[in-house]
Nucleic acid binder design. Sequence first.
DNA 1: GTAGGGTTAG
Length: 748
Amino acid sequence: MKSPISASKQCIHRLLKPQKSSTTTTTTNLRRLSVAPDPIQPPSHEQLTQSAITNLKSTDDWTNNTILHQQLLSLPSNFLPKIARELETSIKALKFFHFINGNQSLSPLSLSSVFQVVIELAIREEDSVSLVNLLDLSKELKIPLSPHSATLLMRYFFRVKKIQNSVLVYEGLDPDVKTIGVKNTLLDLLMKSDRFRDARHLLDEMLEPDVKFPPNEVTLNIILPSLLRWNLGNENENENEKILGLVPKFGIHGLFPSNIWLTQLITKLCRSYRNDKAWDLLHEFMKFGKVEVAPCNALLSGLGKARNYDRINLFLKEMKENGIKPDVVTFGMLVNHLCKSRRVDEALDMFKKTREGIDGICIKPDVILYNTLIDGLCKVGRQEEGLSLMKKMKSEDNCIPTAITYNCLIDGFCKSGEIERSLELFDQMSNEGVNPTVVTVNTLVDGMCKHGRIGNAMEFFRKMQDEKGIKGNVVTYSTLISAFCSVNNIEKATSLFEEMESLGSPDALSYYSLISGLTQAGRPDDASFIASKMKKAGFHLDLVSYNTLISGFCKRNKLDKAVEVLKEMEESGMKADGITYNTLISYFSQKGDFETAHKFLKQMINDGNVPTVVTYGTLIHAYCLAGNLDEAMNIFNEMLITSKVHPNTVIYNILIDSLCKHGKVERALSMMDTMLQKGVKPNTTTYNAMLKGLSSTKRLKEALILMDQMRNQACDPDYVTMEILNDWLSAVGEVEKLRRFVEGYQVA
DNA sequence: GTAGGGTTAG
C-alpha cells in the first residue's frame, strides 16, 4: 500500500532534479537583470536582490538561468534567506534552495538558513506531509536544522497532535543544535502530551552534571506547573513522582524553584496525603539553604492536619537550626493548634511571649491571630475574655475586627444561651461598618434554634433575606430543618427542604438533617424515602447516616427493616462498624433474641471489629432485662478475668440497678465496693440505683453514708435522686436530713 | 494560619 507520504516524497524528489529549460526565458531574465537604475554605479545588493526576486517570481522557469545563479551567489549569504522568504510558498522556496545548492562557494550555514525558510513557509502552509519529507531531505542532504527551525518543527508537530514526529526531529539533531532552548521545547511538549516517561528520561539527561547545555530557569518553569496540575491517582502518578524526585537535582546547576513554587508543591503534596514526600523534598532543598518560611509553613500545616506532632516539633527545631525564622503564619498555626486542643491559656501565653519578643522572636500579631485566639476563648466558654481581646486588638495593635471576629464572638454568646448579647454584637458590627455574612446569619439561626426559639430564628432568617440580601445556604436550611424535625414539625421541615431544592442542590448534610430528623421523630420509613432520594441525587449515605437509620428502625421496633438497611449498606460497599453491630446486638438481645444477637457478635468479630465495653454492656443489660442475672454476671466476670476490656461506670450501674431490683441489695453494695476498688468512678446514676435499692429495704443508715459519699465525690444529685430521697425521708420524718443534704452538709 | 450545620451503641 502506498502512503500519501511516499507520494508526496516523489513530488519532492522530482523537485530535486534540475530541469532542462528553454534559453529564451534565460535571455529575458538576463535582460531584466541588466536593467540597472544607474549605469555608472554597479547595482547595490539591495537592488540586485530586488531584481532577483522580481525575476524569480515572474516565471517558474529559471532553473537553468546561469547568470541569475551567479548573481545570486555574488550576494552576501544573509540575502539568500530573504529572497527565499519573498517567494512565499514552500514549493518555490524549495526550488530556490535546489537552485543554489551544490555550489561549493556557498557555506553550509547559508544553505541551511535557506532551508530553514523553506520549513518556516511549509509550517505556515500547515502541510505536515511535506514537512515530514523536508525532514527526510535535510537528513539525506546533511543540512543541519537550526535550533530555531527544530523548535518550530517540534511545536508544529505537537500542534497537529503528532508528538512522535517532534521526538524524531529532536533525535535527528546534531548534538550542537540540541541547545537548552530546543531541549526545553521538547520537554514542554512531552509534558503537555502527558508523555511523562519520555519527559523524565529527557530531564534526567538534561540534569547530568557536565552537560554542554545545562538547564535553566525555563526548564524549571516547564516542569513545575505541570507537576502542580498532576492529579492523584491517575496512571501517570508514578512518573510524576519520579519527575518530582528529579527537581532537587537542579541544585547541582545552581537552580532552585522559587519559594512560591516550592510552597505550592509542598501544599499539593500535603493535600494529597503525601506528607512524607513533602518532608523529604523540603529537606532536599534545605540542604541548599534557600528555603524560606512559606514552604515550611505549608509542611507544618500538612503535618498538623495529620496530627504528626513529633514531626512538627522536630521540624520547628530544624527550622531554627537552619536559620529560618517563624513568622506570624507559623505562630498562627501553633496558636490554633493549642486553641483547638482547648489549651487556650498556653495559646495566650505563646501569643504574649511572641508579641513582646521574650523568646528572641518578636511577632506583630495580625487580625487572623487575634481571631484564632478569640475563637479559642469562645469555644471554651470564655466569650467575655474574647470580647476584651477584641477591644485590645483595636486599641493596642490597630487591628480592625472582621466579620470572622464578630462571628466567633456571636457564636460564643449563642452557645452560652446569651442570644441577646449576640444580637447586640450583631448590631454593633453593622454600626462599625462590618457586613454580616451568611455565617453570621447561620450562627444566630443555630443559636436561636438550640435555645428553643425556632420561630425567632425563622423570622430572623427571612428578615436577613429581605433586608441584607443574604439568601441563606445549605447550612441555614439544614439547621432549620433539623430544628423543625426536633419539635416534630415535619411539614415545616419538608417545605423548607423543598424550598432549598428549588434554590439549588441540597448537600449530603442537608439530606442527612431531614433523614436524621425524620428518624428521630419516629418516622424511619419517611427517612428511608428521603435516603433513596438522596442516593438518586448522587449522594451516598455515610456510616453515621446508616447507623442513625438502623437505630431509628430498631427504636421503632422494626428490626427486620434495620437488617434490610444493613444489607443495603453492605451492598453499597459500606462496611458496618462497631456501632452498627452494637446497635443491632443491643436491640435483638433486648427483644430476647439472643441467638441473633450472638450471630451478630460473631459476624462483628469476623468483620474485624473488637467487641468493646459497649458491646458487653448491651449484652449484660439485655440479660438483666431478661432476668438472667447469672448470665449477666458471667459476662461481667469474664471481663474482669480477661482484663482486655474493663467494665466501666455504665456496666456497674446496670448490674447494681438490676441486683437492687431483684432485692439483692447486699450484693449491689459489694458490687459498688468492687467498683471503687477498681478505680471506676460512681456517678449520679450509680447513687440513684443504690439509694433506690436501699430505700426499698429501708436501710437508712447506709443511705445517709452514701449521701455524704456522693457530696464528697462532688457528684451532684439530680431530680431522680431528689424524688427517691424526698419520698423516702419525708415518709420516715427525716426531712431535716434532706435539707442539710441539699445545702451541702454532712448528714450521717 | 481564623468563623457556621449532625455523631449513631450500654
